[in-house]
Design a protein around this nucleic acid. Sequence first.
DNA 1: CGCCAGGGCCTCA
DNA 2: TGAGGCCATGGC
Length: 213
Amino acid sequence: MLLNIYAVLLKKQGFQHWWPGDTDFEICIGAILTQNTTWRNVEKAIGNLKNQSLMSVDALLRAGERKIASIVKPAGFFNQKARYVYDFCKFIEVNPMNKLRKGELLEVRDALLGIRGIGKETADSMLLYALDFPIFVIDAYTKRIFSRIGVCNEDIDYEDIQGVFHKGLVTDIDLFKDYHAQIVMLGKDTCHKTPRCGLCILHKQKICSYRLN
DNA sequence: CGCCAGGGCCTCA
DNA sequence: TGAGGCCATGGC
């Protein structure tokens, strides 16, 4: 079932090569900046950081929250996000990513969740895409799409829907990465809050019968 | 113009 | 532990 849906999305949309970002650190910063924000706006913020040579732990710590806030402004919620980025850097300063990569998944996850501004989705995005741990990322699109298919309710708890994927799929980092990417693509292009079922491959294949329009 | 975007925190029951 | 308010820019 889950694998079949992935196959359909893969065939339609192509392999996604996700997450966008030149380095693992940049992936983490992007994960923070994209909270409840379109990637288009995040790109501007990331571009600003790179232009000012601030895409590194040391440079960001030296810059400080005020400076970071002014630079990531296009990503929205910039005061909060500047604090989150700064706190994340303070954490990485003590726990470098190559050290985290050698840790136990759930312990590293708990450590990330202990940082102000890093919740479940952000932590799992970092774990999967930057640290290469096998954990499935759940986001608003995942809940929306799979509730419309009929797998769950849209307000299902994070760990509950994550468990559906962990139980229904083989533990494969590359599969987890690309499956989530496929979900985001479908969400951005088609499965909007107001659905565009006429464009949806899952509707065409009769996998989803949420609504005709 | 109004709606919405790849969340998460804080507060208050 | 669950609901509601808040954070903010930019595209459509």
